[in-house]
């Protein structure tokens, strides 16, 4: 199980490292400076908060349901 998970992660990281050369301009500069990771971190934080919030609503609702 662990092995397959590990190989999956490795495969995905390999996929992300592929270089691309066909003349179409992509946002490579943004990536080169590494600042894209800041954006990813912020978005990850936002979505995690959103999902945790959903979980907390769910939990509170469960309490109310039990109370009735």
């Amino acid at each position: 199980m662990k092995k397959t998970a590990l190989s999956f992660i490795l495969m995905l990281s390999a996929v992300s490292l592929f270089a691309q050369e066909n003349g179409v301009e992509m946002a490579d500069k943004l990536r080169a400076s590494g600042k894209i990771y800041v954006v990813v971190a912020v978005m990850l934080l936002l979505f995690t908060a959103f999902i945790l919030y959903l979980f907390s609503i769910d939990k509170r609702l469960k309490k109310v349901e039990k109370g009735n």
Binding site: V15, F47, I51
Partner: peptide
């Protein structure tokens, strides 16, 4: 969803 947020921004896409 969290995975798609991270991977969607970072992984290689077709040019």
């Amino acid at each position: 969803v969290l995975y798609s947020v991270v991977a969607g921004l970072l992984f290689k896409v077709p040019t």
